[in-house]
Amino acid sequence: MEHYSLKINGNVYETDAEPFESLLDVLREKLRLTGSKKGCDEGECGSCTVLLDGKPVLSCILLVSDVREKEVLTIEGLPQGGEPHPIQVEMTERGGIQCGYCTPGIIMSAYALLQENPRPSEDEIRFAIAGNICRCTGYSKIVEALQAAAGTPIR
């Protein structure tokens, strides 16, 4: 075991872990930040998406040792001042959420997109969330919610 001080959502978390454990397992099982989901555990579904130094990555295949000296942002870190982020609000109100299991990953991918491109086109939204699989919605309502969150016109 190694000792890690991890910077997550602006806080420092102390934990022991094997260096090759996934960030996802450390988040969920050791730090009890369970918002990031485990869907496939092999980098295919996007449910575990978190931001590493501002970039969306797959925490299920990211080793915890690669997170040293970096900033992690998870779904739990998105609300500001106790208020849900606009993406979280629009996803809720526009039917972008059914079973909810892919939702945190979708929101993190969308958040990363809006950070670098505040007014994305529909194509840019679909490209950015192509790595997040949803089996319930058929994606249309998700795309509409993200367009609303970005303040861009909805088809």
Binding site: P56, V57, L58, S109, F127, A130
Partner: peptide, 9 residues
């Protein structure tokens, strides 16, 4: 290749 998240890794 893969997805945006995958290509960041």
């Amino acid at each position: 290749i893969g997805s945006v998240q995958l290509r960041n890794m």
